[in-house]
Amino acid sequence: MSSSTDSPTLTTETTQLSPQPDTETAKPTKKITLKSSDNQIFEVEESVAMEFATVKSFFEDSPSTDTVPLPNVTAKPLSQVIEFCKEQIKFKANPDEAQKKKYNAEFVTEKSDKDLVDMIPVANYLEIKDLLDVLNQAVADRIENKSVEYVRSFFGIDNDFTAEEEAALRREHAWAYEGVDED
């Protein structure tokens, strides 16, 4: 890229860029700035930010603020949550249950275990119910029908039961019926 000030490509780009949003959407979309706990700035459209119940009520309480601090949220899961909500807004505008289901399934499938689990407290804090449901189910699916040992290593959790306690719990469990009376 040249640094010349009279570059013809640059000027055409700017003239092309500015009218585009105006023709696509009649009114200019308002942007809202979110700041993660690790001081990263995210500019999102107002409609996306309003998907976050926490942000929405923040704005209702103090409408003049331009930056919403999110002290419990780090940048990586936040960017993924924003990505999800952007898509959900498209589905809100053009409802297509099959496509939405497909997108939601792909969204979680491609995420690592850590990414999935990291997004849950974020979705919980921002009160995004749809995402929370999707994430909970996805994590549940990944530990479904796995042994206790597998679940521990999956999440990197140390077993803090004594051998006696674990044996006692397993004896208690012998009393529980499985797969019946789910009505």
């Binding site: 994590v139 549940a140 796995k146 077993n159």
Partner: peptide, 17 residues
């Protein structure tokens, strides 16, 4: 997350820690 699991899987999870 537990609510999304079957009864049998909940049992396993309760033994994790």
């Amino acid at each position: 997350i537990f609510q999304s699991l079957s009864s049998r899987n909940r049992k396993h999870c309760s033994l994790v820690c």
